[in-house]
Every structure is written in structure tokens, then in C-alpha cells.
């Protein structure tokens, strides 16, 4: 079982790693690149805590092999803030107390950012369905949905 050499780009940085063909992208991000922002809540694509984007497409990094990342552009929660300036979504999540334990927060942020890039004016229903793959056990989703929709409104006003 020889290891595979992978060159990819994560949050704009060119990176390389060696991985077992069975290792997921999530394993590689966390264990090889020390990017532990993405979490493994289920390993079966059902909780969304490991959400990242690959070439702009929202995916669960637990449902993709590390080997498949070759040549891709990957964005994780660690890349959402611009230097020391938080993304509006990050600010609103804190302001709305849209997190309690915070384990789902990285996945929610990546997924919500992807939603707003695709649909700057989502309805509550669209927001809820887009985030249906991001389980949160603490909040009942209420404050999360409000934070995302308020961010969308703020971004629309700013643009």
C-alpha cells in the first residue's frame, strides 16, 4: 500500500502531502496539514461539520478522498476571514449567538458562505434547505438562520 503524493491548493496556499488512498480529504486537512477547523461529526456526509469547497463547490470533505484533491482549489473555514478582518457571516454568527458549543460552526460558515455567493437573497426556506446537511444539536437553528439571513441583507445593502 504505497502512499500517494498530492499537490493541491488550500485557502490559496500551495500544499503537498502524502496520503494513503483510503484517507479522506478531511483526514488530510486535519492530520497532514494541521487544518483542524473542519470537524468529523459523522464520516458519512450526514452532518456537514467537515464542509469545505472544492473548486468553488460545497462538499463534505469526509466524502472525498485526499487523493482526489490533486490540482484542486480548496477553501476551508480557516480561509474565510480576510487577515484580521472577519467575514460578515463570522461577525453575525457571534453577534446572534448562533453557536453554543461551536462544533458545527465551521461547517455552517462554509456552507452559508457558499449559499450567499450563489444566492444573495435567500428566503428562510431556501436557507433552511441549503443548510439541511449541517446538523446543529444545540441551537434549534433559529439563531443560525437569522444570522445568515441578516448577513445576506447586510451584504446586499453594502453592494
Amino acid at each position: 500500500m504505497s502512499k500517494l503524493h498530492v499537490s493541491t491548493t488550500v485557502n490559496g496556499d500551495a500544499v503537498e502531502y502524502l496520503c494513503d488512498p483510503r484517507e479522506t480529504l478531511l483526514d488530510c486537512l486535519r492530520d497532514k496539514l494541521n487544518l483542524t477547523g473542519a470537524k468529523e461529526g459523522c464520516g458519512t456526509g450526514d452532518c456537514g461539520a467537515c464542509s469545505v469547497t472544492v473548486d468553488g463547490r460545497l462538499v463534505c470533505s469526509c466524502l472525498m478522498l485526499g487523493a482526489e484533491a490533486e490540482g484542486k482549489q480548496i477553501e476551508t473555514v480557516e480561509g474565510i476571514a480576510d487577515g484580521d478582518v472577519l467575514h460578515p457571516l463570522q461577525k453575525k454568527m457571534i453577534e446572534y449567538a448562533a453557536l453554543q458549543c461551536g462544533i458545527c460552526t465551521p461547517g455552517i460558515l462554509v456552507a452559508a458562505k457558499s449559499l450567499l455567493e450563489k444566492n444573495p437573497n435567500p428566503t428562510e426556506e431556501e436557507t433552511r434547505y441549503w443548510l439541511a446537511g449541517n446538523l446543529c444539536r444545540c441551537t434549534g437553528y433559529d439563531k443560525i438562520i437569522r444570522a445568515v439571513m441578516d448577513t445576506a441583507a447586510e451584504l446586499r445593502e453594502a453592494s
Binding site: R30, A38, T76, E78, I80, A81, M93, P106
Partner: peptide, 21 residues
């Protein structure tokens, strides 16, 4: 007020159980 661990938790910096090595 904003929670003190807010920034850590929205940036992926907060260290949970599986995040230590």
C-alpha cells in the same frame, strides 16, 4: 455581549477533543 470564545469558534481555531496532537 459577544462571547469571549466567539472568534476562536468562527475561525476554526478553537481546539476540540480531536484537534490536539
Amino acid at each position: 455581549p459577544d462571547r469571549p470564545d466567539g472568534l476562536d469558534k468562527v475561525t476554526g481555531r478553537a481546539k476540540f477533543g480531536a484537534d490536539m496532537s
